[in-house]
Structures are given as C-alpha cells and as structure tokens.
Design a binder for these strands. Sequence first.
DNA 1: CTCCATTTGCGTACATGGTACCTGAATGGT
DNA 2: ACCATTCAGGTACCATGTACGCAAATGGAG
Lengths: 247, 247
Amino acid sequence: MADEGATSIWMQPEGHERSGPGRRPGYSREQITRTAVRIADAEGVEAATMRRIAGELGTGAMSLYRYVPRRDDLFDLMIDLAMSGIELPDGPSGDWRGDLTLLGRRIRAVGLRHPWLIALLTSRPTLGPSLLRVHEFALGAFSGTGLDIDDITGFVGMLNDYVHSAIRREIGWLEEARRTGLDPERWKRDYMGPYVRQVVESGAFPLFNRSVLDSRTAHLAPEERFRHGLDRILDAIAALIPSLCSP
Amino acid sequence: MADEGATSIWMQPEGHERSGPGRRPGYSREQITRTAVRIADAEGVEAATMRRIAGELGTGAMSLYRYVPRRDDLFDLMIDLAMSGIELPDGPSGDWRGDLTLLGRRIRAVGLRHPWLIALLTSRPTLGPSLLRVHEFALGAFSGTGLDIDDITGFVGMLNDYVHSAIRREIGWLEEARRTGLDPERWKRDYMGPYVRQVVESGAFPLFNRSVLDSRTAHLAPEERFRHGLDRILDAIAALIPSLCSP
DNA sequence: CTCCATTTGCGTACATGGTACCTGAATGGT
DNA sequence: ACCATTCAGGTACCATGTACGCAAATGGAG
C-alpha cells in the first residue's frame, strides 16, 4: 500500500469492501467507533483505550489497527459520530435567529450527552462530514441576509465560540472532578472552593468578586443561562447586520 | 501532612521556607515550572515529561514530586507562569476599546510564544493568580460604562472566546503538524489538502466552498486578520452597550 | 478439489509515560 | 554529638500506543 496513514482519515476508505480473496473482516470502523463513544460517555475519553475498546468487542487491541490507522484518527471518527447525532432541517427556514437558536440547543444537547466532545473538537483541527454538514447549516442560516461571506464566517465563528465555551463552563468542572477521582460535590467544596473563598476574602480582585457574588444569572438553571447567553450573542450579531440596522 | 494534593495547587505553598531541621531544598517550584515551559515551547507540551524536566535540571524524576503534587498541577503552574508574562497598565485607562485591544494583542503574543498555552487553558478550569489579574483588568475596562456585572462578565467572555479561538485557528494546524511529525508544509499539502480539495470539488457544501475560496480576509497577514476579528467583536459589544447606543 | 496469494485476528514485545515506595544523605535544634 | 526531619533520586509497577510476525480464514485459478 502507498502511504498508509499519511493522509486524513476521511480520505482512507475502510478498504473492507473488495471481493477478492482473504479473510472476511469481523468488525467495522463504525462498530469500533460506537464502542469507543459508549465507553467515553460512561467513563471519560481517557478510559477509551485501544485495549479497552478491543476488550469490549471481545478481541485484541491490535485488531483495531486493521480498521483505524492511529488512535487520533479514532478521535476524529468519534467526533464525527457524535456530530452526526445532530438532526437539522434540510435547509434554512428564512428565520436566521430561529435556525441558529435551534442549532445552538442541538449542539448543547450532544455536548452534554458526550462530555468529551467539545474538548476533543477544540483541541485539534478536524473537518469530518458531519461537522461540515452542521457548519453548512449555520452558514446557510445567514444566506438570506445579503451578508458578505467573510461576515457570515465571522458570525458563525462567534456563535461557535460561545456555544463551545458555554458547554465547557457547564460541564468543565464536572469532568475535572471525575478526572481527579473525587465526586463532584467534594471537588467543589474541598478542592476548588477553599481557593476561591480565599481569593474572594483577600479582596484583591473586586470585580471578580462582584462577578462571583453579585451575579443574577449564576442562579439560573443551566439551560436558561445558556439561552440567555445565546440570545446576547444573537443580539450582538443582529446589531451588526447592516440590512437590519441601517438599511 | 494532612490531605496533600487534596486541594488546589494555589492553596499549597511550596513548604520549603521553614527554618527547622532537614536537608535544604536544591530546586524550586518556579525553577521547575520555567524548565517545563522552556521544553514545551521548543518541542510541545507532550515533550515536557517529568523525566525530561528532571533530566534538564540534572536530577531524577521523583525529585520533582517534592515540589509539585501531580503533573496536572504543573500544567496549572505553567499556565500561570505564561500568563504572568502579560504586562498590563495598573488600571483601566477609561478607553475601554483601547484597553481591550491592548489586552487582546498581549494575549495573542503569549499565545504564539507558548503554543501549548491556549490548549491547556481551555482544557481545564484553572484560576491562577496571573489569570485572575488579567481577568480583572478585562472586567475593569468596562467599569466606567455603567454596565451590569453580568453584562460585563458576558462581554469579557465573548472577548476571551474570540481571542482564544483566533489563536487556535492561527497555530492549531501548525501544532497538529508537529504532533504528527510532518513538517507543516507537507502536512498542509499531503495530509489536509487532498481532503479539503475533495470536499470542495464535490460541491456538497456550497457555502463552505465560498468561505474557503471567496474569502478576502484569508489573504491578510495573521496579525491583521486577528485585529479585524477583534474589531468586529468590539463593534458588537459597542452596539450592545445601552449607554453608547440609546442613552 | 487443491493450491495459493491475500487479508484478518491477535499474541508478543518494546518504548514511554506517571508515580508509589524506599533508602541514604544532608541539616539544624537539643 | 545525637536525632528527628527533610530532600535526592534509584527502583519498580502498571498502563498506554503500536510495530512486528505468524497462524487462520478465504475465494479465485488450475
């Protein structure tokens, strides 16, 4: 074979669909990816090791390498499988705000269902087909506004940035607690709590203190807080669309 | 000792400043952190292993554990050391746009100088003193605008989100190329290029195609592109500040 | 049916990582 | 001079990704 693994995983077909001689494959890329996702959902992405995935499938670790070139490529496949769970209308509805609100909520839903997703997604440049589909839908939401493609890309970027970091804020400390082995309540009270309390009581950062103590949105339910932030981003975008602001 | 490592690294002093009996320490937390940062800058954060850092200091890996409870805590220290390199005025100047532009450029500078910084920073909730100082400056930039603390927090978040993801876009693929062992030019041409070309030529994602092919900002110098995006975010924020829009 | 090139299954092995544990050396108070 | 205390760092353990090699399965050619 020429240059195995020297190109993107999306350029390498499974290769198990010829009809020549040789033993029939007993597994599949999708089956392996699904297993990895299931393990990562339940115990974190660091639990989805090659041996563990293979064990779950009843085979040896090295068998997986007949289907996936490297572990990093498996991450790309996991990301794309998770993103494929986002159901979207076939095209934009004409109501860009409604479309993007829907998209934001769907992304949040998969981000919570797969707590490893956002961390992987933002840790490496990846462009799987499902991600492209989602991205295309986001771009399409602005297609009726007469905006420049650069402006559209920028707005979609702003939205993505917000959605990703909001999800990270929502689950980041939970994941960190899990990684350190403490239960979340204990982590908040014994691990992070004392330090934040010390910082607050020192009075060295008065505005930080206000953002911790005087916040009204901090007491909202997570979904409400997400929606509130998303609305602000959409407000900001609306304020910058000339055809809506100064026609 | 009671509960070593059961609390944040920022709550655990070095402990090497008593005057009782016992051997004098030969190293320091800061020295170890500086060494780790130097290695990570040159060869990536994955090269900054405990053994490697210790070797660079001429000692054994286990000696480091007298100064740092876990490797993850060392990451927190590295993040904070890098952030401490950001020089800022003592307080806000009154020109919030100018202050935040300055801050954005400074963060970009350290993000490029330490290509591992943004990835670490966004991969775990950490709140070191230097990060707090920078955050407080960002919050302070809005202090003269009469805004609600929740609004200020939201705007600072928007800005942070943009700055972080812009830096990631700028260096993310370079880092990925280094991780896979290819030189950047080869990675772009042989690894990612063919896939993007295939996607473009398939015509399946017309708006994605336009964002790749018809972009004007894509041909700007990196710093210009960063400034342009930052200006758009600041425009968006300005448009949402009621005291500037509808007083 | 028999052979054989081809492909998969997977055990073995290696390099590398974090870090628990232990011994010995250094140090300052009594 | 003794000794509790603290640091240096070697050894060891376990987990990880994955290179390599061989046996088993498979379907076409004769």
